[in-house]
Computed example of a mutant assay.
Amino acid sequence: MTSPFRQNPVFRFAPSPNGPLHLGHALSAFLNHDMAVAQGGLFLLRIEDIDLMRCTPAFEQGIYQDLRWLGLTWEEPVRRQSEHFFEYRAALDRFIDMGLVYPAFMSRGEIKAFVSEYESAGQSWPRDPDGAPLYPPLDKERDPQEVKALLASGAKHAWRLNMERALAQLSDPLVWLELGQGSETSIEADPAAWGDVVLSRSDAPSSYHLSVVIDDALQGVTKVVRGLDLFHATSMHRLLQALLDLPVPEYHHHRLILGPDGRKLSKSEGSTGLTVLRDAGCTPSDVRRFVGL
């Protein structure tokens, strides 16, 4: 559902506290903050810490320190995803009630073995836009009594979206308004390219895809400004928004800061970390220059 945009647009910067911020994060934070100021809007900070195994309080504190050093301010309180698992679970329960998700029991190793066996015959197994193999159809074909028994036994499982059933719910093509290509462009979404994506798993109560669309809706975000590496993910987000009847923000996917190898920066590359740059005597103005602003 597309709703009229507020008079004051709402932007958000949403890092994960699983490592130190680097120049790529600085570019995204600057763009969101500067656009909010220029348009008389709000700049929100969201901590995306659904990965309870990798996210730490120390990295979270590092995010606040780095952003304050850059001279950025944001609305309070900060939304932390780990405090809102019940909201993501409520959305998952809706999908369960609608019959649009199913429990998936295959491990990563089993998926890899299935794909390897399939491709050993000279055929190519389909992959999503990130290059990961699409989930095999075995769990969708399980006998309902077998599924019930597996769940009752406590077998580890994820909840995956049944893409075929989800697409059957739509009456109109999915599109989004893209502002990051120099002009307003209507982009047709292709969620089928992602296959049956995970919405929840035993070690992560919510997936990125599910939590981000709910967070954006609940926070009233109207402008999603993020890196080009998430351009194709927008197709999945548009599908979830349509299924949950959520408002649709405008999107702006910006260029990435690339490393010497031509790939986007990683949190493991210490030389581009904001804390490292600060300790080396760089100023926030230097960082703006480094990211091309």
Rank of each mutant, 00 (worst) to 15 (best):
G131E: 08
L92I: 14
A132N: 10
R278C: 05
D245K: 04
A36E: 02
F85D: 11
L244E: 14
L45P: 05
P173M: 04
P260Y: 13
L258P: 01
R79I: 15
P103N: 01
R46S: 12
D51W: 02
R263F: 13
D139W: 12
N162L: 04
V213C: 04
G71F: 11
K264W: 11
L239E: 00
Q123E: 08
D261W: 05
L21N: 03
F13W: 04
R263I: 11
P247G: 12
P17Q: 07
S153N: 05
R288V: 07
F105P: 08
P249E: 07
A280T: 05
F86W: 10
H254A: 07
A158Q: 07
T73S: 10
A158G: 10
G292A: 05
R165N: 09
A152M: 10
Q181W: 03
T275Y: 05
E75C: 11
L67Y: 14
H253F: 08
K223Q: 08
T56W: 00
A280M: 04
R12E: 01
E141V: 07
D279I: 03
H209L: 01
H25R: 04
L167Q: 08
R289S: 13
E75D: 11
Q219E: 12
D49I: 13
E48K: 00
P137L: 15
V287L: 10
L170W: 12
S206F: 04
I187T: 00
V115R: 15
